[in-house]
Nucleic acid binder design. Structure first.
Lengths: 179, 179
DNA sequence: ACCGTCATGTAATCGGTTACATGATTCT
DNA sequence: AGAATCATGTAACCGATTACATGACGGT
């Protein structure tokens, strides 16, 4: 019940447990890896730590089971749900530095012709993965939970942007160079 | 001279000092704040820590001055320069999670109509800033150091992408809702 | 002489990562 | 019965953040 500082990791865990209804830390880890992983991830040690903290803060409640596996099952408390909802509805804008190492390298003089190919390859691969996901959903008529389609759309737009960017950088580099 | 683990923060400091030729930790901090800040930043305590580490690792050399201010002036050693160059030319792709809190909120059920306005406002503001920078450079014929134009281009494309995305999300939300 | 901010650092803390460890199942 | 992996955690370390502290210089 003591006051706990809530980081995005906290809300991440709260969010996953809310979606699952109840979950062991292991379930949280698994579900996260299966779904949000491309947009946000967390090592499992951290999941356990967060669960402990959230329990202590009264945002989660725990049932211990005597059977071997799934020894702890966690649920949001009323307070936990309220806190999660509050966060979700908070339009605060947190400026994010892109922290793209490739961009930093360019800044310090990294050469586009050296960097671009690998970047392009990887972004194209990721993009194909996303697009297949969306396509598959359409074909099979499966539904993505609300919010997931949005995240996927973001992913697609991000990857497309990066591909366009690196192509731009590479071509600009070719034009600029005098060899 | 002992082995130091190099993080991106290390290369960040090396990169800044390389650009400046020689610099005190304070100079590093100031230059970083003045230039790369929108894409990458680092609290000054960390700059001091990195300088110490890089010194210990033999990647920086230091001249102590007896005068009060700018007591330490740092320069890249040959090894430091080699390490920086090696990093710049390394095309390794490090997958970055976007870690956009807004996207995470959408994932967990955050409402686009609640979130979008603030996000749009901020991204538009940032975009205007970047575009003015590029425009100003063109008009005055100033030159950006190589790499900086690229970083700025990335920033512009990123912001445009985010604006388009949030507009998409908001409109999709309007269409989807049955009120 | 005094005040602000410039320049430089240190200390404490904490979240996150990596690595290690182990009992519980399930499969062969 | 033994191997594999499932599920659960702990421990140690480390980089990063926050906060505090202080001498130096420049302006009034």
């Amino acid at each position: 019940m003591s006051d706990v500082r809530l980081t995005t990791s906290s809300f991440f865990v709260l969010g996953i447990i809310d979606k699952l209804g109840e979950a062991s830390p292991y379930d949280v880890k698994t579900e996260a890896a299966r779904t949000v992983a491309p947009f946000w991830s967390m090592p499992h040690a951290q999941v356990y730590a967060q669960c402990d903290r959230l329990l202590e803060g009264g945002l989660l409640s725990q049932v211990r089971r005597e059977s071997g596996r799934n020894r702890r099952v966690l649920t949001l408390t009323g307070q936990g749900l309220a806190v999660l909802r509050g966060w979700l509805d908070d339009p605060e804008f947190v400026p994010v530095e892109a922290r793209e190492r490739g961009i930093l390298k360019l800044w310090f003089g990294g050469r586009p012709d050296v960097l671009a190919p690998a970047q392009l390859g990887e972004h194209e691969k990721t993009l194909r993965g996303y697009e297949e996901l969306v396509g598959g959903v359409g074909e099979l008529g499966e539904l993505l939970a609300p919010g997931q389609r949005e995240a996927l759309e973001f992913g697609i737009r991000y990857e497309r942007m990066m591909i366009d960017f690196w192509e731009w950088a590479r071509h600009r580099d070719e034009r600029t160079q005098d060899r």
